[in-house]
């Protein structure tokens, strides 16, 4: 038990040594978590957009084939997507 307390005391420098390692750990982990979260959210957005993109031209081909059809259908399709 003494060995542990001795170790934690850091020869009287505990108040400086441990905060150093704690702050380093906090900053590095926070940067990592933030980077991961940004990556995840952007990839999710990208996937959603790409799915919308794939879904789009297939539906739009109908109004393009018949240019006389009302423009309203196109707007509705966009809203659905």
């Amino acid at each position: 038990m003494d060995a542990v307390t001795d170790f934690l005391a850091m020869g009287g420098y505990a108040a400086f040594v441990w905060p150093c390692f704690a702050i380093t750990a906090v900053v590095m982990v926070a940067l990592l978590v933030q980077s991961l979260a940004a990556l995840k959210s952007r990839e999710a957005t990208l996937r959603a957009l790409q799915q919308a993109e794939e879904a789009r031209p297939r539906r739009r081909r109908t109004p393009q084939a018949a240019p006389d059809s009302t423009p309203d259908t196109g707007a509705e399709v966009a809203r659905e997507a």
């Binding site: 590095m28 990592l32 980077s35 919308a52 993109e53």
Partner: peptide, 26 residues
Amino acid sequence: YYVWVLLLRVHAEIAASKIRALRMRQ
């Protein structure tokens, strides 16, 4: 650690620029 986080951030930036391009096109 630097390389790890750098890769994650670059991947996120690539995704962001793709998102921008898709939004522009839409």
